[in-house]
Write a protein that binds this DNA or RNA. Sequence first.
DNA 1: TACGGCCTTGCAAACGTTTGCGCCAGACCG
DNA 2: CGGTCTGGCGCAAACGTTTGCAAGGCCGTA
Lengths: 358, 358
Amino acid sequence: MQRRGGGGGGRDGPGGRTIVTLADVARAAGVHYSTVSRALDPVSSAQVNLETRQRLQALATRMGYQKDMVASGLKRGRTHTVAVIAGDLGNPNLAPVLRGIASGLEQAGLMTLISETQFDSARLERILNHLMSRRVDAIIMTAARPRDAPTLRWIRRQGLPLVLAIQTVPGIRLPACTNDDYLGGVLAARHLLSLGHRRLAQLRGPMEFSSCFLRAQGFSKTVAAAHAEEVVVRSTALWGSPEMGGALMRELLDKKGARPTGIFAHHDLTAFGALSVAEERGLTCPRDLSIVGYHNLPHNDRIAPPLTSISQPREELGRTAAEILIAVLSKPGRTPAPRLVRPSLVVRKSTGPPPKAQ
Amino acid sequence: MQRRGGGGGGRDGPGGRTIVTLADVARAAGVHYSTVSRALDPVSSAQVNLETRQRLQALATRMGYQKDMVASGLKRGRTHTVAVIAGDLGNPNLAPVLRGIASGLEQAGLMTLISETQFDSARLERILNHLMSRRVDAIIMTAARPRDAPTLRWIRRQGLPLVLAIQTVPGIRLPACTNDDYLGGVLAARHLLSLGHRRLAQLRGPMEFSSCFLRAQGFSKTVAAAHAEEVVVRSTALWGSPEMGGALMRELLDKKGARPTGIFAHHDLTAFGALSVAEERGLTCPRDLSIVGYHNLPHNDRIAPPLTSISQPREELGRTAAEILIAVLSKPGRTPAPRLVRPSLVVRKSTGPPPKAQ
DNA sequence: TACGGCCTTGCAAACGTTTGCGCCAGACCG
DNA sequence: CGGTCTGGCGCAAACGTTTGCAAGGCCGTA
């Protein structure tokens, strides 16, 4: 299929490019190719005489030799490739995380393969088969939900190292890196409480995501500990959007009883939708109600009013996930402890003291 | 290194998982493994007798056989992997494009490898070496600039199929998929002109990006064709940010002569910054000036005033890039024509008729 | 019946790298 | 001076798949 060059050796690649192999270098150096292999491999290079080693290394770089990772992968069973399985690549919050992962892995000589399940389990299965057949060294999963637990266990049974990022799954012990969403909820609650709010509410995201669940818990516990009141509305089924936020806000305002003055939205977009509905109802923010968002989207200071929000270091999360994965690969036995990345509160104009009237 | 199982055959993978090979299936079926290979390969399966073929296919799936793509890649020289080289993965506009690419490629059985240059040419070189050594089948490059032309030519010389996405490079003929940025500029200009504006200006992005260059051209030509006036300010060195927008806006307002009333920002974030500065100077939008942004970021309708913007189908762009790539791979000789994805204008409240006074 | 043409299947050599094993020469020791 | 040890290198067998080639059987025709 692939022609061997006549004189100089070297293989013709698909596009007619010449590929220099170990054999080519060996021929040029007058040694056996296994010697070249050893000379170029950092660990076995001690087995070859110092000066031949240096000569071969110099020759290899001069000839433009590049180890064929495919062949190496076949032989060694390690492809130096890590797959990231995301739920929705369209989610803008994901990009910085991916960046962190990719740059963190790159430093360890690992490449990043990305794929997207679109939260479809058949698709996930197809992807996993693909990845197994490609012999990836490990998997990072970014949007795992409780219902994915069997799949996660399956992956683990296959012996594939697995690290969770962004979301964790209760009841399954796996190395993971997430935001400290519980703390995020606490920060939001504390902020509103410290401003004097005593009637609070949450516009919650889907509770199957650990991030939302923990945010809700952190918030509720803090509110309860302060003996303040929390008005409960249902959580959304879909992830943050203005429409969802509007719907929840309407539901909240339609409830009988005193209206909450401090609101914690699990997503900035949800907060936007809620603000629109509040304005329709003649409420102004922050005079009549305060609202805290989540994610600290880049335009929060341009909207009216600029949105107080919880900021998460997303790229750091990705880098940390990469670190964990590298640790797992280097010592397969141990499961590193889950790691948390701390969020912080960014105060803007959408929060203030509650109205005096109440 | 890897132990062979005693009785049943099968290889033990890194984590102790058992891998079923062609030889295992063949042994179980009592045929030679080459026959199994042929039976399972869609093109050569015609060579094997219908009923053995079916028997082998059934047995293979029953035994959980999965073709080892690494071994196949070594033999065939095709890895079914495509690399996407991005400039900045943190750019939120990129995520939908990546999604489009990944899902488009997946349908052709190709996997997507992503990497990020951070606009550092040494890094780009390292990445390319890595990719070559990994024998990727093709490369998609998303943020090429004129200064990258030598590298692009080098890739082409290596015989690696290459497709540009989002940005093109003048003077180098390569298959590409971009937004019709020229049209975007035209749409912005037409909109402002049709509202009655006669003095216009642009807050331009870095002109080394073909996208910005073409937007600028489309806008300027349309303005000139309408015999309206364009006030020129320098373009930014960095990509859209509120700070950049503010700086450019200040420069524009400090110019002597009549103030432009219609402004086209090459990025929504630039527009946001410009709006802030305008407000500082006591100008209100859209009463005193109109502004059109670009990218149609998801929160444009929540800012004050909601921002008129040019929307680009980003995911479609990614899918189209994938289509082009697949075409290139299927017939290596031909260079498919560059394709354009059409943007559209989304009118909101930041644009209106010019002030009567002028 | 002999022979040429198929349809199927087996054989074995690749693809490029890694690595256990063994060989050789030189050094060292008794 | 003979034996053992060791550093350095070559040999060849893998890793799992693909594929040209050939061999065997079967059929049809001369």
